[in-house]
Design a protein around this nucleic acid. Structure first.
Length: 611
RNA sequence: GCCGGAGUAGUUCAGUGGCAGAACGCUUUCUUGGUAAGAAAGAAGUCGGGAGUUCAAUUCUCCCCUCCGGCUCCA
């Protein structure tokens, strides 16, 4: 799906650079045997068997670094020669001759021949070399020795027509790693050289900055440093424990959500964490979803499951009384905790857990209300991301069921109708969207909201579905104005996804520097000497009365050390109290990362913090 | 779940077939200081868990658990 967002041009650039990389490596290591060189996310790689690289390169470090830079330099000089890329269809016999000294290429050729695939190759050459092509391609390795750039590679294609289309300052070789030929351990190990490439130098710079930043911002590391959450082996993998500071963030978000949902016409409900097997049989989760649920608890009156989703419970609330067309739409919101038995290897910090709390809601409406309701849901997402969290980079992904048909409930009419409604609503919303196949939930197509942080991490923040299956399975109906019972439409929505994933995203998005309203500790009062203690305590008390989350550091440490620690904790404002403040009845304020704001009256600080 | 890597003090990490190490943090004492680390002393470990080899295992072998990277999957 990510592919859909990329232009073909950048793919061509990356692919072409892989070839140029092979050329450069061949020039440095004429004996190198070539593997394959595909395009990957953000760049490309190429595999080589580099003979003559002695056994002494055990300590990679510097040698490798220098090599990459050298190869990069070589690549740049090749790019500047304005080399042409030309596609050629070749017979098996001919390619075999060209690649007679390239065992891996011969292996591929054999494979293609077996599959009766057409063999195409790309020829890279300079004007100067045009006349010598026939002579030179007898051995693509040696043609570099003649100072005429010329290179043949088996390739399906997708190349620039000339290297002048590639910005020589917009790519970088990033790392070297080992990789087995065709990914199989029994095969020889090759050296894989990775590179990243973009259309412009600015994009490359941004990417490199994001890489560097993402290491520093990893929510697992910041989560520990800022004491937000933890895991305990005895509790179990994928089951986060929220520490007091992390809990503040959870609750601030939840309180905000309660208010927003109230404003947008939702009512809140609450449901238990378990339910009988019958409920999940009714919903259809047992056949489709059982392997992702924790195994059942066997009790006297049957099996009980930990809930993996909130919908069936909420549907029971809808069914608790007969509904009239006048009641609709009904919007039930809930922060519901669910448990899913995810594969152990997929668990990752807070991004993927086995227990998480969703910002869930279900909207029950009439057919004539569906579009408007879904549109509102989309607008609600926009409001949260843009207005509340300053996440400006997001898009919707319409997930359709094509592959794996058996994974989806088989009601074709319902699917088609839902897809149509969703598609037209997405267009009306004016928000960016793409379509992806094979990602739908079993009970209907869904609209995922993909959000991107400032460091480029993309996550599915929210999944929204139009559910036509629940209506049938649970017999969710209302009495229309003609006195007849009609099916309702159910919309599932969760703009903030789960607390776990969303907060993981926010930690990285904000680099742990939360906006004032979310900061677990909003300000801290530091004393310079203990003569200031009683005045400092007064300040702390006042701040607490104003509902500001304040900590107080009166330890016997130097002011420099206290400031350092508060800065490392990324506390938005630091208040410093010493003799001078005591005399002038003021406070000294220091803003995180900005530094000293000077002395001010406490009231002025309150105004500042209120913004 | 699969493939690969790792697990030693609260944290980050050295290290060894023969008494377990550093830095930071923590505790105590001295120091009362002005915008990112004042000084000294002290406490702190089932060397992830279990089995095996050995006179002796944190170190070697096997099994399990957890974490990390990837596959896959998703909120």
């Amino acid at each position: 799906m990510k592919k859909l967002l990329k232009t073909d041009k950048i793919e061509s650039i990356r692919h072409s650079l892989a070839h140029i990389l092979a050329m450069a490596v061949l020039k440095k290591f004429p004996q190198a045997k070539l593997g394959v060189g595909p395009v990957i996310e953000n760049g490309f790689y190429y595999d080589f068997l580099l003979k003559g690289q002695g056994t002494s390169d055990m300590g990679q470090g510097t040698t490798v670094e220098i090599n990459l830079k050298d190869i990069e330099k070589e690549m740049r000089s090749m790019l500047k020669q304005n080399l042409d890329f030309k596609r050629e269809k070749l017979t098996t016999a001919k390619v075999k001759k060209i690649f007679k000294e390239q065992p891996f290429k011969l292996d591929l050729i054999k494979e293609f021949a077996k599959e009766k695939k057409e063999i195409t190759a790309y020829h890279t050459f300079s004007d100067k070399g045009k006349d010598t092509i026939d002579k030179e391609f007898k051995n693509p390795v040696t043609c570099h020795m003649s100072h005429v750039a010329c290179f043949f590679d088996l390739c399906r294609g997708g190349h620039v027509s000339n290297t002048s289309e590639i910005n020589p300052d917009a790519f970088k070789l990033t790392k070297i790693s080992g990789a087995y030929w065709k990914g199989e351990q029994k095969n020889p190990q090759l050296t894989r050289i990775y590179g990243v490439a973009f259309e412009t130098k600015e994009e490359l710079k941004k990417y490199l900055w994001q890489q560097e930043e993402s290491l520093k911002r990893d929510h697992r590391i910041l989560g520990e440093k800022l004491k937000l959450f933890t895991f305990a082996e005895k509790v179990g993998p994928g089951l986060p424990l929220w520490l007091p500071k992390g809990t503040i963030i959870r609750e601030e978000i939840e309180n905000r959500a309660k208010k927003v949902e109230k404003d947008w016409g939702y009512e809140r409900v609450a449901t238990p964490h378990i339910a009988k097997e019958e409920l999940y049989k009714m919903s259809g989760h047992i056949p489709y979803y059982a392997e992702s649920m924790f195994p059942p608890m066997k009790l006297d009156d049957g099996n009980y499951y930990l809930k993996a989703m909130n919908c069936p419970h909420t549907h029971m609330i809808y069914k608790s009384e007969p509904r009239s067309y006048r009641d609709l739409p009904i919007r039930y919101a809930e922060y519901g905790t669910v448990y899913r038995y995810e594969l152990s290897g997929t668990l990752a910090g807070l991004l993927r857990t086995r227990g998480f709390t969703q910002n869930d809601a279900h909207i029950y409406c009439r057919e004539d209300q569906v579009e408007e309701e879904f549109l509102k849901v989309m607008k609600l997402h926009e409001f949260w991301y843009k207005n509340v969290f300053s996440i400006t980079d997001f898009y919707m992904r319409l997930s359709l069921p094509t592959k794996n048909k058996d994974k989806f409930a088989n009601i074709p009419e319902g699917w088609e109708k839902s897809v149509e409604i969703l598609r037209s609503t997405m267009k009306k919303s004016g928000l960016p969207f793409i379509e992806a196949e094979g990602e739908a939930a079993f009970y209907g197509p869904k609209v995922d909201f993909q959000i991107k942080s400032v460091i480029g991490r993309e996550e599915t923040a929210s999944t929204n579905q139009l559910d036509f299956l629940a209506t049938k399975r649970f017999n969710l109906t209302y009495t229309d104005n003609d006195g007849k019972e009609k099916p309702v439409y159910v919309i599932h929505r969760a703009p903030l996804g789960s607390h776990e994933r969303f907060i993981a995203f926010l930690i990285e998005h904000y680099a742990g520097e939360f906006p004032f309203w979310l900061a677990p500790v909003q300000t801290t009062v530091l004393t310079v000497t203990d003569r200031a203690n009683s005045y400092a305590e007064e300040i702390v008390k006042t701040l607490k009365n104003k509902e500001i989350r304040v900590s107080y550091d009166q330890r016997n440490e130097t002011i420099g050390k206290k400031i350092r620690e508060a800065e490392l904790q990324k506390i938005p404002y630091i208040i410093i109290i010493g003799d001078r403040e005591m005399e002038s009845k003021t406070i000294s304020v220091r803003q995180h990362k900005k530094g000293d704001l000077g002395k001010m009256a406490l009231e002025d600080f309150l105004k500042l913090a209120d913004k």
